[in-house]
Design a protein around this nucleic acid. Structure first.
Lengths: 195, 195, 195, 195
DNA sequence: CATGAATGAGAGTTCATTCAT
DNA sequence: TATGAATGAACTCTCATTCAT
């Protein structure tokens, strides 16, 4: 019962933050949607901002964890698998993607959380690039650029197709395939370029 | 004199929206920073949101216009020039980049504006890809994916280096160089891949 | 066990009302301090105000009763004994003195209680003055003035030394001695004055 | 006009704090009584507590200042004049006396203010006692006791007659006369007593 | 008797906007 | 055009009290 109400509040908030945005959503809206009393909200959350940060942190943490658990494999294959994995995770967590795009990565409320998330993501991607020896001869900074740019491309596509166009998981394949094709990740292409 | 006050208000708002964010910035803060009276604000702007949208639209319009004016040139070269051009434009307009990252691309206040902006950008990039015949055999949708992913990577890098790390224009070169290297844009690389 | 919980609540409330004040002290603070559940509070007290009034009335009743039991004796001696008795009672009950000074004699919650207490005190003092024939020729009103003023001086001193300065019972002597000296209570002094 | 609204708010608050008490009086009550809008309140006062403290400090400051300005004169006469002066000041400022008795000298909101006030008063009284050489041979502490006890008696009588019984200024004479009579301030009385 | 999760009325405060000067 | 005092709707958060277990 106790857990029940808290879960209801979180579900209601998630829905409203996504459709209406954080600032437009009143605590009274959340509790009404959750079917609990106004005071009940403050039994489980210190403040509206607290709930917002809790939700965001939990969702992003889940996303990051999933991605960190992915094993790194051989080059060409790995790139495709990694990208489609990230796309799938974002497709499944499109709500949080939507919320962040609605509220701002660097918003006063979420700044630190999304910064940590992006750093975590960047490190995962960079270490995969290093392990796969995808870009031999790159400086640390260049590897960081490569990592952030990959995050940027996947994120933007995920947002466009899964949130804006509201497409389903069947789009993962075509997007991942195209991204891999665009990226010069075959031994041939890169080998020649770096020679 | 009249123009003067309006300009002062815009400058003050731009500064505060960037450092404090839209919701945290009060109209009273803006007029104080601008050195005008509270009522003066409403001589030039219908509302706080109106000013915010005006500013955002004007800045993004400038960015888009600059990019649309770029001529499309030969392949390998063109990719580098386009990317560094976009990076330079973002470096020069880091304020609006910051504001949007702070406030959210899909925020209730800016949603339509940023959507139009991204569409405009996407079309420019796509038409460049088509003209350069960079990805022969791609469907319209794949070209869109290619375009959005390039926007995503450049945007994320621009945000990371010019806003978060607050780097100067000297970083344009290294970022553009790395992005070109990552993207499989040489005739050789793509030729083999599409064969 | 039952009595136990009630006593614990009263003790906790007494402590918190004294240190934090009535309005600042929440029912949740009281039950936490007492180590009982929130609901238990309402098994023993109708409301927070009810408890507050109960405590105050009981403490002040005890003080008044003690003073009423004092026998009246011969003049000079009696004055000293009465004053030192009152001082001792206040020193022992400094908590309630503190609470009332913190909350207000005429507060909405205590007004009637303190008024009754002061009336009771005044009557005791007045009757002592009458019995001792301390102020022959005084009208009823003058006797009342004499009584209230004595209450006022003892009360203020008790508050200053026992609550504000937190002095111990050893101060009773010096204060009582000084007060007696100030008051013109010797037969000689008064006799001459009234002649 | 500006001063006007602030004055209206202060007047309304003074009235309501006196009749209803600080905690019972809502900001909405004050602005309604003052005939201004809710927001106007915060144009002039940081918070409800701020207004309360402002009012109290101003009133008590006025009382203290008036008393400090009194010149010290010859013994017997001086005692009567001082006492009747204090009584008159309290009679004229019965509102603040009422408010403090209602809210508590040591309340969280006023503690520091009333403490400063009492200290100021005590010093005035003590220095008068010293100048008049009223109590030769008294230690500093005994002089303090004498001072506080006089404050206590006058204050209590002022409260009883001017606030509780709501008597007029014509009572100053009878009270002052009685208090002087009670206090052993004639050279004769004290001389004999201390011999 | 005892619990503590749930309640909901209500308070103080903020701030975008207006309008008389 | 410019001012800035005045407005009042709206919001978050508190906390005494209740009641099903």
């Amino acid at each position: 019962m106790a857990e029940d109400k808290q879960a209801k509040i979180i579900a209601a908030a998630l829905k409203l933050f996504e459709t209406e945005g954080y600032h437009t959503t009143k605590v009274s809206d959340i509790v009404q949607e959750a079917g609990v009393a106004q005071g009940t909200f403050y039994l489980y959350f210190k403040s509206k901002e607290d709930l917002f940060r809790d939700i965001t942190e939990a969702c992003l943490g889940e996303v990051a964890e999933t991605l960190e658990k992915e094993g790194t494999e051989e080059c060409g294959e790995q790139m495709y698998r990694t990208i489609s994995n990230v796309l799938r995770v974002f497709a499944l967590n499109r709500s949080i993607l939507h919320i962040i795009y609605k509220h701002g990565f660097a918003s006063n409320e979420l700044k630190d959380i999304t910064e940590r998330f992006h750093l975590r993501l960047m490190k995962v991607v960079k270490s995969q690039l290093v392990q796969a020896n995808a870009y031999p001869g790159y400086t640390e900074e260049q590897l960081e650029i490569a990592a952030y740019s990959k995050i940027g491309m996947v994120e933007k596509c995920a947002y466009q197709w899964f949130v804006v166009k509201n497409c389903g998981m069947e789009y993962i394949e075509i997007i991942a395939h195209t991204l891999v094709d665009i990226l010069d990740c075959t031994a041939a292409g890169r080998g020649e370029a770096s020679m």
